[in-house]
Amino acid sequence: MKVGVLALQGAFVAHATCLRSLGADPVEVRTPDELAGVDALVLPGGESTTMSMLLESAALFDPVAERVAEGMPTLGTCAGMILLGREILDGRPDQRGLAAVDISVRRNAFGRQVDSFEADLLLRDLPGGPFRAIFIRAPFVERVGAGVEVLATVDGHPVLCRQGRVTVAAFHPELSDDLRFHDHFLKGI
Protein backbone atom coordinates (compact mmCIF):
# COMPACT_ATOMS: atom_id res chain seq x y z
CA MET A 1 0.00 0.00 0.00
CA LYS A 2 1.70 3.18 -1.19
CA VAL A 3 0.57 6.56 0.07
CA GLY A 4 1.31 9.53 -2.14
CA VAL A 5 1.67 13.12 -1.01
CA LEU A 6 0.98 15.73 -3.68
CA ALA A 7 4.28 17.64 -3.66
CA LEU A 8 3.60 20.59 -5.94
CA GLN A 9 3.77 23.17 -3.16
CA GLY A 10 3.01 23.58 0.53
CA ALA A 11 3.29 21.36 3.59
CA PHE A 12 4.01 18.07 1.82
CA VAL A 13 7.20 17.37 3.78
CA ALA A 14 5.36 17.63 7.11
CA HIS A 15 2.66 15.21 5.89
CA ALA A 16 5.28 12.75 4.67
CA THR A 17 7.06 12.97 8.04
CA CYS A 18 3.82 12.13 9.89
CA LEU A 19 3.11 9.17 7.59
CA ARG A 20 6.69 7.90 7.93
CA SER A 21 6.48 8.11 11.75
CA LEU A 22 3.50 5.75 11.50
CA GLY A 23 5.44 3.21 9.48
CA ALA A 24 4.13 4.13 6.03
CA ASP A 25 6.41 4.75 3.05
CA PRO A 26 5.14 8.02 1.57
CA VAL A 27 5.89 8.94 -2.05
CA GLU A 28 6.09 12.52 -3.30
CA VAL A 29 3.81 12.97 -6.31
CA ARG A 30 4.66 15.60 -8.93
CA THR A 31 3.97 13.74 -12.19
CA PRO A 32 1.24 11.49 -13.67
CA ASP A 33 3.65 8.52 -13.49
CA GLU A 34 4.19 9.05 -9.79
CA LEU A 35 0.43 9.32 -9.26
CA ALA A 36 -0.14 6.04 -11.08
CA GLY A 37 2.07 4.26 -8.53
CA VAL A 38 0.14 5.22 -5.40
CA ASP A 39 -2.93 3.72 -3.72
CA ALA A 40 -3.91 6.75 -1.64
CA LEU A 41 -3.19 10.47 -1.82
CA VAL A 42 -2.76 13.39 0.56
CA LEU A 43 -3.29 16.90 -0.79
CA PRO A 44 -1.44 19.21 1.63
CA GLY A 45 -1.99 22.78 2.71
CA GLY A 46 -0.39 25.57 0.75
CA GLU A 47 -1.72 28.13 -1.71
CA SER A 48 -4.61 26.61 -3.62
CA THR A 49 -4.19 29.12 -6.47
CA THR A 50 -0.58 28.00 -6.90
CA MET A 51 -1.38 24.31 -6.65
CA SER A 52 -4.27 24.46 -9.10
CA MET A 53 -2.01 26.15 -11.67
CA LEU A 54 0.66 23.50 -11.07
CA LEU A 55 -1.89 20.64 -11.29
CA GLU A 56 -2.72 21.88 -14.78
CA SER A 57 0.85 22.53 -15.93
CA ALA A 58 2.02 19.13 -14.65
CA ALA A 59 -0.90 17.43 -16.47
CA LEU A 60 -2.10 16.08 -13.13
CA PHE A 61 -5.50 17.74 -12.82
CA ASP A 62 -7.57 15.20 -14.76
CA PRO A 63 -5.65 12.11 -13.58
CA VAL A 64 -6.05 13.16 -9.93
CA ALA A 65 -9.75 13.92 -10.45
CA GLU A 66 -10.24 10.51 -12.09
CA ARG A 67 -8.38 8.55 -9.41
CA VAL A 68 -10.30 10.28 -6.62
CA ALA A 69 -13.60 9.70 -8.43
CA GLU A 70 -12.70 6.00 -8.75
CA GLY A 71 -12.55 5.78 -4.97
CA MET A 72 -8.87 6.26 -4.10
CA PRO A 73 -8.63 7.06 -0.37
CA THR A 74 -7.80 10.76 -0.26
CA LEU A 75 -7.10 13.32 2.43
CA GLY A 76 -7.08 17.05 1.70
CA THR A 77 -6.00 19.61 4.28
CA CYS A 78 -6.47 23.40 4.05
CA ALA A 79 -5.64 24.13 0.40
CA GLY A 80 -6.25 20.43 -0.22
CA MET A 81 -9.81 20.89 1.04
CA ILE A 82 -10.28 23.79 -1.35
CA LEU A 83 -8.94 21.80 -4.30
CA LEU A 84 -11.12 18.75 -3.58
CA GLY A 85 -14.37 20.69 -3.25
CA ARG A 86 -16.93 21.15 -5.99
CA GLU A 87 -17.02 24.94 -5.80
CA ILE A 88 -14.29 27.41 -4.80
CA LEU A 89 -15.44 30.78 -3.45
CA ASP A 90 -13.01 33.74 -3.53
CA GLY A 91 -10.55 31.84 -5.69
CA ARG A 92 -9.01 32.86 -8.97
CA PRO A 93 -11.73 33.15 -11.63
CA ASP A 94 -10.24 30.30 -13.68
CA GLN A 95 -9.59 28.07 -10.64
CA ARG A 96 -11.25 24.64 -11.00
CA GLY A 97 -12.14 22.31 -8.17
CA LEU A 98 -11.54 18.55 -8.40
CA ALA A 99 -15.21 18.13 -7.39
CA ALA A 100 -14.56 15.06 -5.25
CA VAL A 101 -16.62 16.36 -2.34
CA ASP A 102 -19.90 18.16 -2.90
CA ILE A 103 -19.10 21.28 -0.89
CA SER A 104 -18.55 24.97 -1.56
CA VAL A 105 -15.38 26.16 0.16
CA ARG A 106 -14.55 29.79 0.83
CA ARG A 107 -10.84 30.61 0.73
CA ASN A 108 -9.32 32.60 3.62
CA ALA A 109 -12.74 32.43 5.27
CA PHE A 110 -11.32 32.77 8.79
CA GLY A 111 -9.27 35.83 7.77
CA ARG A 112 -5.66 36.73 7.03
CA GLN A 113 -2.37 35.44 8.46
CA VAL A 114 -2.76 37.31 11.77
CA ASP A 115 -6.21 35.72 12.24
CA SER A 116 -4.73 32.22 12.28
CA PHE A 117 -5.70 30.25 15.39
CA GLU A 118 -5.77 26.90 17.17
CA ALA A 119 -8.85 25.08 18.41
CA ASP A 120 -9.53 21.84 20.27
CA LEU A 121 -11.83 19.66 18.17
CA LEU A 122 -13.60 16.62 19.56
CA LEU A 123 -13.55 14.13 16.70
CA ARG A 124 -15.80 11.12 16.91
CA ASP A 125 -13.37 8.79 15.17
CA LEU A 126 -10.34 9.83 17.24
CA PRO A 127 -10.36 8.37 20.74
CA GLY A 128 -8.07 9.93 23.33
CA GLY A 129 -9.50 13.37 23.79
CA PRO A 130 -9.71 16.51 21.64
CA PHE A 131 -7.43 17.12 18.66
CA ARG A 132 -5.52 20.41 18.69
CA ALA A 133 -6.25 21.80 15.22
CA ILE A 134 -4.14 24.56 13.65
CA PHE A 135 -5.94 26.92 11.29
CA ILE A 136 -3.73 29.12 9.05
CA ARG A 137 -5.56 31.55 6.75
CA ALA A 138 -8.03 28.73 6.79
CA PRO A 139 -11.04 28.09 4.58
CA PHE A 140 -14.43 26.89 5.75
CA VAL A 141 -17.32 25.16 4.06
CA GLU A 142 -20.31 27.30 3.16
CA ARG A 143 -22.49 24.72 1.44
CA VAL A 144 -22.72 21.02 2.14
CA GLY A 145 -24.29 18.78 -0.48
CA ALA A 146 -26.20 15.56 0.00
CA GLY A 147 -23.97 12.62 0.88
CA VAL A 148 -21.39 14.76 2.69
CA GLU A 149 -20.85 14.08 6.40
CA VAL A 150 -19.81 17.04 8.55
CA LEU A 151 -17.44 15.70 11.21
CA ALA A 152 -16.44 18.94 12.95
CA THR A 153 -17.39 22.60 13.01
CA VAL A 154 -15.92 25.85 14.36
CA ASP A 155 -18.42 28.61 15.17
CA GLY A 156 -20.99 26.65 13.20
CA HIS A 157 -18.81 26.42 10.08
CA PRO A 158 -17.94 22.91 8.85
CA VAL A 159 -14.15 22.36 9.02
CA LEU A 160 -13.96 18.59 8.62
CA CYS A 161 -16.06 16.71 6.06
CA ARG A 162 -16.16 13.30 4.45
CA GLN A 163 -17.77 11.95 1.32
CA GLY A 164 -17.05 8.36 0.36
CA ARG A 165 -13.29 7.75 0.64
CA VAL A 166 -12.41 11.46 0.64
CA THR A 167 -11.82 13.40 3.86
CA VAL A 168 -11.18 17.13 3.83
CA ALA A 169 -10.03 19.32 6.72
CA ALA A 170 -9.75 23.11 6.90
CA PHE A 171 -6.85 22.81 9.36
CA HIS A 172 -3.29 21.45 9.31
CA PRO A 173 -3.19 18.08 11.17
CA GLU A 174 0.40 17.58 9.95
CA LEU A 175 1.57 20.47 12.17
CA SER A 176 -0.14 19.34 15.38
CA ASP A 177 2.48 16.97 16.79
CA ASP A 178 -0.34 14.44 17.24
CA LEU A 179 -0.34 11.49 14.87
CA ARG A 180 -3.88 10.25 15.57
CA PHE A 181 -5.35 12.02 12.53
CA HIS A 182 -2.89 10.45 10.07
CA ASP A 183 -3.12 7.11 11.87
CA HIS A 184 -6.88 7.12 11.33
CA PHE A 185 -6.40 7.96 7.65
CA LEU A 186 -3.90 5.11 7.17
CA LYS A 187 -6.14 2.60 8.96
CA GLY A 188 -9.00 3.54 6.65
CA ILE A 189 -7.06 2.83 3.45
Partner: peptide, 8 residues
Protein backbone atom coordinates in the same frame (compact mmCIF):
# COMPACT_ATOMS: atom_id res chain seq x y z
CA UNK B 1 1.80 27.93 3.98
CA UNK B 2 4.54 29.28 1.75
CA UNK B 3 6.84 26.27 1.42
CA UNK B 4 7.86 25.06 -2.00
CA UNK B 5 6.73 28.30 -3.59
CA UNK B 6 7.78 31.62 -5.07
CA UNK B 7 7.26 35.01 -3.41
CA UNK B 8 7.37 37.82 -5.95
Amino acid sequence: MLKGGVIM
